Amino acid sequence: MALRILMFNWRDMHHPEAGGAEKYLVTVAEGLSARGHEVIFRTSAYPGGLPDEVVNGVRYVRKGGRFGIYPRALAANLTRRYKADVVVDVQNGVPYLSPLTRRRPVINLVHHVHKEQWPVFFGPRLAKAGWVLESRIAPRVYGGTSYVAVSDATRTELGGLGIDPDRVEVIHNGTDAIPLDGTPRSLNPSLIVLGRLVPQKRVEFALEAVARLIDEIPNLTLDVVGSGWWEPHLHAKVAELGIEKHVTFHGHVSEAEKHHLLAQAWVHAMPSLKEGWGLVVVEAGVHGTPTVAFTEAGGPTNSIVHDQTGLLVDHGSQEFTAAVRSLLLNDEQRARMSSEVATWVAQFHWDESVERWEQALLRAAGRVSPTEDPNS
């Protein structure tokens, strides 16, 4: 029953721009390896990354840069270099177009559709070309494949591109974090933003919220956790707003420090333009820290139960600020949500995610798993 699985993803967890999407796939890859499957993770090269190594049972092959990885991966697929039983093709805006090789079964993993993000990174022409690639060409190329989405919101978005929802299986993120019962909340009102520091995360909205609230909440603090090429712009924004004494940039931190900061915070702010699910929503929730996010981001509408485990706002920096203010100042509301979010996130487990991925891969490869075989 063991499979040889080839995964295409443009980053791995050691990449300096890695985020929740990489955490998802690497955790699934390591879980599948622990179950006896051979997993080859084809990804892009980066300074300091070994071109070929095995980590926790997963073989990483790092070749090609941010864009060069795509033709290299397609060429590797054409030559049958890895003799895989099934391919997991992660469509992070740009698809790998694995079905064109017609060599082996493919599952297309989509965290979210990138319609809103193309203009953030590219000029009008390139943004339009990227959206045509994602919304018109990719659905045709992957017309005969199965999909996995990380949320119902993403499945709905794929349906808007003409992909039959029956072909899309939703496999949520999980968590392996445990509550840090010995870590007290910060004595002063505190916010945390956690993730890659890139434009689409819109950390500016959290900075603006602090600037608007410090007259009313003078001891308010914001911890910005993560790194990325947009960080100098955020430092400049802090200076422009005059909130240097209220904001701490922690950079990239260890898992232990990340969870310590999440457990201390009163509120987790996630002003992202788009999220497939929002892994940090669950990670914060383990520690009873509720999240404020945007409805328009998509995935948070599934990872957050509005007014129970956090707050969802429709649009705009001022509305985001109002929601943050409500949670910081209303002790009763925050305590209720803290209890409810800790209960809510307890249902999400990586073991279940890996189990569902294993079944999906076995089906795609034409295998019958022992749990599904009535004669076993």
Results as ranks from 00 to 15, higher is better:
residue 235 H to T: 10
residue 236 A to Y: 02
residue 237 K to F: 07
residue 238 V to L: 08
residue 243 I to W: 01
residue 243 I to L: 03
residue 245 K to R: 14
residue 246 H to M: 04
residue 246 H to Y: 08
residue 246 H to D: 00
residue 248 T to H: 10
residue 248 T to A: 10
residue 249 F to D: 02
residue 249 F to A: 06
residue 250 H to Y: 14
residue 250 H to R: 15
residue 250 H to G: 11
residue 253 V to Q: 05
residue 253 V to I: 13
residue 254 S to H: 11
residue 254 S to I: 09
residue 255 E to Y: 08
residue 257 E to I: 12
residue 258 K to D: 09
residue 261 L to R: 12
residue 262 L to G: 06
residue 262 L to K: 04
residue 263 A to H: 03
residue 266 W to V: 06
residue 268 H to Y: 12
residue 270 M to G: 01
residue 270 M to L: 13
residue 271 P to D: 06
residue 273 L to F: 01
residue 274 K to W: 02
residue 276 G to S: 07
residue 277 W to V: 02
residue 278 G to T: 08
residue 279 L to E: 01
residue 280 V to K: 02
residue 280 V to P: 00
residue 282 V to I: 10
residue 284 A to F: 13
residue 284 A to V: 07
residue 285 G to I: 07
residue 286 V to Y: 00
residue 287 H to F: 12
residue 288 G to W: 02
residue 288 G to M: 07
residue 288 G to R: 06
residue 289 T to M: 07
residue 289 T to E: 01
residue 290 P to D: 01
residue 291 T to V: 10
residue 291 T to W: 05
residue 292 V to I: 14
residue 293 A to L: 08
residue 296 E to R: 15
residue 297 A to D: 03
residue 298 G to V: 13
residue 298 G to N: 11
residue 299 G to E: 01
residue 300 P to S: 05
residue 300 P to D: 05
residue 305 V to Q: 05
residue 306 H to E: 03
residue 306 H to V: 10
residue 307 D to N: 15
residue 308 Q to W: 06
residue 308 Q to P: 02
residue 308 Q to E: 08
residue 309 T to Y: 02
residue 310 G to E: 03
residue 312 L to E: 01
residue 313 V to L: 08
residue 313 V to H: 12
residue 314 D to K: 09
residue 315 H to R: 14
residue 315 H to L: 11
residue 315 H to G: 03
residue 317 S to P: 06
residue 318 Q to R: 15
residue 318 Q to P: 01
residue 318 Q to Y: 08
residue 319 E to A: 15
residue 325 R to F: 01
residue 332 E to L: 15
residue 333 Q to Y: 09
residue 334 R to L: 15
residue 334 R to S: 11
residue 334 R to I: 15
residue 335 A to L: 14
residue 335 A to N: 09
residue 336 R to N: 09
residue 337 M to H: 08
residue 338 S to Y: 04
residue 341 V to Y: 01
residue 342 A to N: 04
residue 342 A to T: 10
residue 342 A to W: 04
residue 343 T to D: 02
residue 343 T to Y: 04
residue 344 W to I: 05
residue 344 W to K: 08
residue 346 A to M: 09
residue 349 H to T: 13
residue 350 W to N: 07
residue 350 W to V: 11
residue 351 D to N: 10
residue 351 D to I: 14
residue 355 E to Q: 13
residue 356 R to C: 07
residue 356 R to H: 09
residue 356 R to Q: 12
residue 356 R to W: 10
residue 358 E to Y: 11
residue 359 Q to W: 08
